[in-house]
Amino acid sequence: MNLSLKYRVLMIVVFAIFIGVFLYYYGTKARQEQAVAEELREYSYIAREYALDAIYKSTEFPVEVELYPSAHTEAILERWKAISDRYPELDYPEAAIEARDWIEVHKSFEDTDLLNGVIRKMYKDATVTSEGLGVSYITLLDYIFYQKYEASNIEDVVIDLGIEPSREEE
């Protein structure tokens, strides 16, 4: 092949541009896909935890998911508010709940030390012993989110504190 130098340089430049564009495209796409996966994971987690109804309009970039509270969401919020009224250190983010920004709402549960403090105080105030029951912030989360009484005596605590009506009244 007898190509002029100019022609060869041009070919190399065109080739380099091609590769550049290709790499850039795939790099962006890979990052985008990762962000999409992360976002969808978060939506699925929040929808499950807060018993939300969800409409998935797009699962590709840009992700489009709408979340709406269900009747069970209201029950979760009621339990949460009742505890927060008595123990204000457990934040009840009214504004974020009003705005239905559930991802922001969930940040209130990030600090597990604080949650551990709340549950300890609850047991202390109710003069119910938690000995040997492995009570921790998970007990509190189980109660707020699932109204789960098992594996602890949290039911006695919330009844004693007047957060839940006593069993006879039901």
Partner: peptide
């Protein structure tokens, strides 16, 4: 995928 809806019951 076109669309999906999820309801809690």
């Amino acid at each position: 995928f076109v669309e999906a809806i999820s309801n809690r019951m």
